[in-house]
């Protein structure tokens, strides 16, 4: 592949300019070129959701999108959601309620949950479980993930 495409993407608030191969997946660009390795890859068929990021505010599996398609967009990754000393409510919920074990699915889970709460600040348990249909976790049985999101929702609506 010799041709590349020039893209300009706002990533976690910073403007990033790059020449990418047209076939470069957004997730690979974020991880390999920008060293934002908090976004994970857990499958090759867009099932697991470990790679979820926000593109213009929408939760997107970054393995289903080419970096070139993000040209002109604003991308937020787990690194841009909140910092250790200024956690996003969902991050805090996951910590408080033991919503993670190995932590591999966690960034994608948190990004999906953050988008859910942005759309629906007070979701029912069924709505939370439905929103997580595109994210797989093998450690928690989802029990504490649901509680973590409820915790975050409670904090946000309190």
């Amino acid at each position: 592949m010799t041709t590349t495409m020039a893209i300009k993407v706002t990533v976690n608030g910073e403007t990033r300019v790059a020449d990418v191969e047209p076939r470069t997946l957004l997730v690979h660009w974020l991880r390999e070129d920008l060293a934002l390795t908090g976004t994970h890859i857990g499958c090759d068929t867009s099932q697991c959701g470990a790679c979820v990021v926000h593109v213009d505010g929408r939760a997107v599996k970054s393995c289903t999108m080419f970096a070139a398609q993000a040209d002109g967009c604003a991308v937020t990754t787990i690194e841009g959601l909140g910092a250790a000393d200024a956690l996003h409510a969902v991050q805090d919920g996951f910590w408080e309620e033991h919503g993670l074990q190995c932590g591999f699915c966690t960034p994608g889970m948190i990004m999906t949950a953050a988008e859910l709460l942005a759309r629906n600040p007070d979701p029912s348990e069924a709505e939370i479980r439905h929103a997580l249909e595109g994210n797989l976790c093998r450690c928690t049985g989802y029990h504490n993930i649901v509680r973590a999101i409820q915790h975050a929702a409670k904090g946000a609506t309190a």
Binding site: L36, T37, G38, T39, T77, I78, E79, L81, G82, A83, A84, L87, Q91, F94, W95, L100, G103, F104, T106, P107, I110
Partner: peptide
């Protein structure tokens, strides 16, 4: 263990 993992620093 969690602060690192929930902020993408694992």
């Amino acid at each position: 263990e969690d602060p690192k993992l929930i902020t993408g620093q694992g």
